[in-house]
């Protein structure tokens, strides 16, 4: 014993740290990453590798040389951004496009606001949407999964893309949806971004996060409920025009977005009430874009739009205080 330490209470800590939370998110995304590599092959591995490494490199360079701050690589948040970005991109995305996405995600969406905790918009989504707008051809070059060593995969649009296009060309919705089977939607057998293809793998990861109390379920559940209700109403009203709940819940990155992007601490509301409104907003906007917008899926835009409302939601909704109305 040297000298007794004297500092104020509490004298112990939960040992949960930013690092341990972010690492848990990475672990939770591993099943989806593995599934996507298995289905899409080495191209997907390249996208994942480039995305994660560029996010780490950029975070390092910016904190070290531009901001002269302590290096924040150790908190694992750059890995989370890299993973989420990669899982939102087609497996055939050229490496330099991935890199541009990382520059936007880390350099613009995260660091210009002051780094982790200060950003208003989800970095990975900003990166993705930037690429979607700037490089639409690459960003819609979806491939049909052919397995880890399957040679060049054939291009194949996402289910929502096929349906949107089909409907615009005057096709029948029932014919268009008939080609998709339930189990395909659940177990990764469709054209789509890596993270969209296996709902099961993503849900397992999300279950892990809930179990470890990393996230609470209220945002995700309110998104699902809203999407289900809105699509049910529309599909009942006009079954030949609008797709139904099951289809909408399982396609277009809804699981990835609702479980892993809308629940991002930094860019979602602090209170439960705020979170529920946030989730309803995301679900509703997603469905409006899907039904009436020009993009086949709307999750990314919906989350970004609702990100912007978070400061307001935080102002309006507070948790109930003990002994106060």
């Amino acid at each position: 014993m040297d000298k007794l330490l004297v500092s104020p209470s509490p004298h112990i800590h939960s040992k949960v740290s930013t690092k341990s939370l972010m690492r848990d998110v990475v672990f939770a995304l591993v099943p989806a990453a593995v599934v996507s590599v298995v289905f899409y092959g080495l191209g997907e591995l390249l996208v994942l590798g480039v995305s994660i490494l560029s996010c780490l490199l950029l975070e390092y360079l910016i904190t070290r040389f531009l901001l002269n701050k302590d290096c924040t690589l150790g908190d694992w948040s750059a890995v989370v951004t890299g993973l989420l970005l990669a899982l939102n991109l087609p497996s055939a995305t050229p490496w330099w496009v991935v890199f541009v996405g990382a520059v936007v995600a880390i350099g613009v969406a995260k660091m210009t606001f002051g780094g982790l905790g200060q950003n208003v918009f989800n970095p990975a989504l900003v990166g993705r949407v930037f690429l979607l707008v700037s490089f639409p051809t690459y960003m819609t070059d979806w491939r049909i999964p052919t397995g880890l060593f399957g040679a060049d995969a054939a291009s194949g649009a996402t289910p929502l893309g096929v349906i949107k296009k089909g409907l615009l060309e005057g096709g029948q919705l029932s014919d268009l949806t008939a080609q998709y089977e339930w189990k395909d939607l659940l177990f990764a057998n469709l054209g789509g971004s890596a993270g969209e293809i296996s709902s099961i793998a993503l849900l397992i990861g999300f279950g892990y996060l809930l179990l470890r109390k990393v996230v609470r379920p209220h945002i995700t559940l309110s998104i699902w409920a809203t999407v289900a209700v809105v699509s049910l109403i529309f599909s009942l009203a006009a079954p030949d025009k609008f797709t139904g709940p099951a289809f909408n819940l399982l396609t277009g990155g809804l699981i990835l977005g609702s479980c892993f992007m809308a629940t991002d601490y930094v860019t979602s509301p602090m209170s439960i009430k705020g979170g529920i409104i946030f989730g309803i907003g995301i679900g509703f906007i997603t469905m409006m874009i899907r039904y009436f917008g020009s993009y086949p899926e709307g999750m990314s835009f919906a989350i970004l739009i609702m990100n912007a409302t978070v400061p307001l939601l935080n102002n309006w909704f507070h948790q109930k205080k003990y002994g106060r109305a």
Partner: peptide, 22 residues
């Protein structure tokens, strides 16, 4: 105590507060 870093707005402090404070 670990080194202080940015608030990540996780809300865990508010969830833990028995007085419902933020």
């Amino acid at each position: 105590r670990g080194k202080e870093s940015n608030c990540i707005r996780c809300g865990k402090c508010a969830e833990a507060c028995p007085m419902g404070l933020e």
